[in-house]
Nucleic acid binder design. Structure first.
Lengths: 137, 137
DNA sequence: TATTGTTATACTCTATAACTATA
DNA sequence: TATAGTTATAGAGTATAACAATA
């Protein structure tokens, strides 16, 4: 069976992303967090007071799709909101949220290590900048 | 706003994949084909007689999800099926399918060129093998 | 017994349009 | 007028379980 697509960077990019996503999804399962939930926790931790809209822009997620995401984190007691003005609010991690975010960072760190372990050592440093060039700006 | 995730290869992988997928989806729109439809055409063209199950394995798509995909390509007159035995059938491109597959390959080629153009020239050759290492075997 | 194609179904992710209240 | 949050909804993509027919 000839996989004539396997050598195309774009095709490999999609397959690699899918493989790594399912691995990370599994690794986050014990925390009962999706990847976007976990990413939100880390980003809120590093940007106390960030609004849902700003957070959505960072992660390339629509404003409307942030609503249930934030609600879930709030219901779980990981995030709290404080009004910034009459229409917007800033997010911050609760005490429990800080502790869960730390666990998320450990899991993500392990995940990155597993990922990089599959790349030839001499090419590891180039991977992140190359990928970043494909989506940033 | 600190995007503390942006330097993680795994995160960049996901963002890069999403960005490139949406670009390719748009490029294929004139043919009214999804990425998996287009990929199927190219793979069937290179593997005349391949079965839906085998094709699904190549693309990491479940057998059950291949059913509507193949049906669509057949309805559009791009692919025909011929019985191999009592329970399985091989796929081949129709005349029209060959012509559309050629257009798909042109679009994919342009897409790969656009993608690689964003990578520093000295790192281009390493990208495909590095990504392949993340999902193959 | 194992495999192929199939049906039905459910869940996640993503995208869009429209509404409200505030700036 | 523009923006933030919200609601509702629809479309893809993906995953699972079960079944019939055949190997």
């Amino acid at each position: 069976m000839k996989d004539v697509l396997a050598d195309l960077p774009g095709y490999s990019l999609r397959r690699a992303s899918a493989a790594m996503l399912s691995q990370l999804t599994e690794a986050l399962e014990p925390l009962r967090l999706r990847i976007t939930d976990a990413s939100s926790l880390v980003l809120i931790g590093a940007n106390t007071g960030i609004t849902p809209s700003e957070l959505g822009k960072l992660m390339a997620i629509q404003r409307s799709n942030m609503v249930p995401l934030i609600a879930k984190l709030e219901d779980r007691g990981l995030v709290s909101r404080e009004a910034l003005d009459g229409r917007s609010f800033g997010l911050r991690l609760t005490e429990n949220g800080v502790s869960v975010a730390a666990k998320v960072e450990d899991i993500m760190k392990s995940h990155e290590d597993r990922l990089l372990a599959r790349i030839p050592p001499e090419h590891r440093d180039q991977l992140a900048p190359a990928l970043k060039a494909l989506w940033e700006d």
